[in-house]
Design a protein around this nucleic acid. Structure first.
Lengths: 260, 260
DNA sequence: CGACACCTTGAAGAGGTTCAAGAAATGTGG
DNA sequence: CCACATTTCTTGAACCTCTTCAAGGTGTCG
């Protein structure tokens, strides 16, 4: 794994404050030499463009485990790129029903839901200590007008989220419990793998209940399904540590056309 | 029964042809004097901007009932604004599972899913004879760079779709059958009402099976639920004609916190 | 008018939920 | 650092909702 010039993390002091490099250079928030750049920013930019892109990130912000990055109803001003940590987003219907709409990890962008109404429409909760890049949306807009690649990138990110949600609808609408869990594990593994982690050794950052909410099933069913997979030798489960022993078995579970 | 405001249909002659104003003025495809403009285009534009926006629409296209506007895998080039008619979008997983991801009506935009990969990732099927405005995406991009309101509008449309899908996830993930159907009917009624139709007199353009796919349940369950609502005097059903008799009853069904 | 697609309804069955209890991990405060 | 409280996870058993299978009815279109 490529070693990265570690950015001195924005100190807690800086967190949440706007646009105040503490000592001019070393603390400067910069996409241009961020190791996650390829995940959250467009590729193939000219050096000048790259430098300008740095201006998209106004500041960084730390979020402690259990704290919210933003909450339903709050004014939307910025998108957030996750640098480290793990989030869930969830919406709550009037009657107190809760639905996890996604789990997000390093390099992913959250906050897109807030654009339409200038207010956030879901909560973003850190499932482990996290740090995000704060990207004021109007600044993104300005730059996107000048840098074609950035404009297209913003469109692609939003489109990607739409497509992802189509996949979730397929999962929720037509898969049975075992298929859902298998698909969930495969998806997590694939995303972690893309970030340089093991593709078979997962540490779940969320509870069974949160998984269940996301997958549209009860926590007991999630637990039972894990146990079943473990009995079948497909995975190994010790609390939140999951090891995938037979990835193709998982894949065929997903594809086995359960209910129609 | 209120008589429905019929939109002056674009003549058959123009339909489908590319960019060929038949007599210079009257046939010109134009957003600036389209009665659906407020639904699919930004408001508050200057007259000049309005004129330029007309260039977004390259042409119109008619789609017969049952035909597809686009299909999974096809190259993505344009977004489509629905002028008349009714569509469903659906994805198909590798193993042949089918999932309806949405129903779209006049003034709504389809094709956003294709941006991320330059290919469509779902099928759009007309459920009744339809006509759409074809808006080449690169042209939208160019104009958005110059007209701030358009840029923001594009972002809002995509964000709105993301938020809509969050709602579907809530529905699929946490509602029971009766709640889903009630929510579905209310949503349809509300959207039709916003377009000047009756908010209580619906004509369903889709089959029970398509409703079921969208709501994650079997067609028989959809049918049974309709019957149940009818018995309870909440709606009246005659095939695809549904009349909402007690809208607040429907609303309380949705909010009655079924399973958690 | 007849073929076909669509819708309704019943009865049996399965998958997932609910309720409950106990075990394992995690965090807290003394 | 240990004991205790709390949260999280697992597992069992009964129950319920929705599905499945089946048959008949209704509407529509060539």
């Amino acid at each position: 794994m490529k070693e990265i010039p570690v950015h001195t993390p924005a100190t807690d002091l800086l967190a949440g404050s706007a646009l105040q490099p503490i000592d001019g250079k070393t603390m400067k928030v910069a996409c241009s030499n961020c190791n996650l750049r390829e995940l959250c920013m467009p590729v193939g930019l000219s050096p000048e463009e790259l430098t300008r892109i740095d201006d998209v990130v106004a500041t960084r912000r730390k979020v402690k485990r259990g704290a919210t990055l933003f909450r339903t109803g709050e004014i939307f001003e910025s998108l957030f790129a996750i640098r480290t940590g793990f989030f869930k987003t969830c919406i709550m219907s009037g009657d107190g029903r809760d639905q996890v709409t996604g789990f997000q990890m390093a390099g992913e962008i959250i906050g897109l839901d807030g654009i339409v109404s200038d207010r956030h429409t879901c909560d973003a909760v850190a499932l482990e200590d996290a740090e995000v890049c704060v990207m004021p949306f109007n600044r993104i807009g300005e730059l996107a007008r000048e840098i074609n690649a950035l404009q297209h990138h913003v469109h692609r990110i939003m489109s990607r989220e739409i497509v992802r949600e189509h996949g979730v609808m397929l999962l929720l609408g037509s898969m049975r419990a075992e298929e859902r869990v298998a698909a969930f594990l495969l998806n997590l593994a694939q995303r972690l793998h893309a970030r340089g982690f093991s593709g078979s050794e997962l540490v779940l950052r969320m509870t069974r209940e949160e998984i269940g909410s996301y997958l549209g099933m009860k926590l007991e069913t999630v637990s039972r399904t894990f146990s079943k997979f473990a009995e079948d030798g497909v995975i190994e489960v010790r609390q939140r540590h999951v090891r995938i022993l037979n990835i193709s078995a998982l894949q065929s579970i997903v594809n086995q056309q359960g209910c129609n």
